[in-house]
């Protein structure tokens, strides 16, 4: 699949935006400005950027917590995300939730529950609704390698396969579920083998090559959109930070990190664009500058934003409140 130059540059922009935003979050976390935890997708950004960018406007993303690229691409701004991290009223959830535990239906993004792979059946349900109503919309649901061991992963995959639902299941296989390596997570070499048991086609892609992720996702979405049922896409990548920013990840062999550092998704994209004379270094630097400016503005916006009123704690429990 040929990807248009304009789209290639957007993919590059979103990779950069995701990386720089999360790098800034990491710094703020270490400065003690972020309460709770800070989970990033460092090293694996091409997964969320690739599958997120391949979605159409009316599609639905049911993400997991290393999917910052999806939030940004769908239209949740860096400003709102930064405010979310700082627990501000202007954050995506107005302070009700922290960090990556967000969702916004206005942009077709389902909220992320920490219970990994919960969004597999939830995503399948949205796909079911599209099928019942005869709408040509698709869902992308994502989880990590660890999440594929949970029952909800299997129940969601099975339901989608049996009913040929318009959904694409993405797996960000970043080798470690917190400290647990793949070999203690499953007795198979590829997560994609799990899809076989459900009679679901699958594809294994280089998760550090955003174009490969994008292309595979785009093709799978079209299959799903045209009644061809679900596909499972395993994106092989490497988590370059700890599980969360408090975690030094000493359990990961340094050589492994060194090896993957050379395969960095942004470096890969940059090299590709320049070697194929799609963009010159100056143009890419210009995009990076724009990204940096955007992050600075987002941080300033978040810092200046007010905190929510404590009384907010009692608001919003029900969509249909009951009078006492």
């Amino acid at each position: 699949m040929d990807i248009k130059r304009e789209d290639l540059l957007r993919l590059f922009y979103y990779l950069k935006l995701t990386r720089r935003l999360e790098d800034r979050v990491t710094s703020l976390y270490h400065q003690g400005k972020i309460l709770g935890g800070a989970w990033t997708s460092n090293g694996t950004e091409a997964v969320s950027v690739g599958y997120g960018y391949a979605l159409e406007k009316n599609d639905i993303a049911a993400p997991y917590f290393r999917d910052m690229g999806v939030f940004l691409i769908r239209g949740i701004t860096a400003k709102r995300i930064m405010a979310q991290y700082l627990g501000k009223k202007t954050g995506v959830t107005g302070g009700k939730e922290g960090n990556v535990h967000v969702g916004d239906l206005q942009y077709g993004v389902f909220g992320f529950p920490s219970h990994l792979a919960d969004n597999y059946p939830v995503g399948a349900g949205a796909a079911l609704a599209f099928k019942i109503r005869g709408e040509k919309r698709v869902v992308a649901a994502c989880t990590g390698d660890g999440g594929t061991s949970r029952g909800d992963f299997h129940e969601g995959m099975n339901l989608a396969a049996v009913r040929k639902l318009p959904i694409v299941f993405i797996c960000n296989n970043n080798q470690y579920a917190y400290s647990t390596p793949l070999k203690l997570q499953m007795a198979i070499n590829n997560v994609a083998e799990r899809a076989l048991a459900y009679g679901m086609p699958s594809k294994i892609v280089n998760g550090n090559n955003v174009m490969e992720v994008y292309t595979a996702a785009k093709e799978a979405y079209e299959t799903a959109r045209n009644g061809g049922g679900p596909t499972f896409i395993e994106c092989k990548t490497m988590r370059m930070h700890g599980h969360s920013e408090h975690d030094s990840a000493k359990y990961v062999p340094r050589e492994l990190l060194e090896e993957w550092k050379k395969k960095d998704p942004i470096l890969h994209m940059e090299t590709y664009l320049m070697e194929n004379q799609i963009a010159k270094k100056e143009e890419l630097d210009g995009i990076d500058l724009q990204v940096q400016k955007e992050i600075e503005e987002a941080e300033a916006f978040a810092e200046e934003s007010p905190y929510p009123e404590p009384e907010e704690v009692l608001k919003g429990l029900y969509a249909t409140p009951i009078e006492e």
Partner: peptide
């Protein structure tokens, strides 16, 4: 549905969201 209470309850939630 298949015999999977968590799966079809999750699916109901997803359908409700859209």
């Amino acid at each position: 549905t298949p015999l999977s209470e968590s799966g079809f309850t999750g699916a109901a939630i997803g359908a409700a969201l859209v």
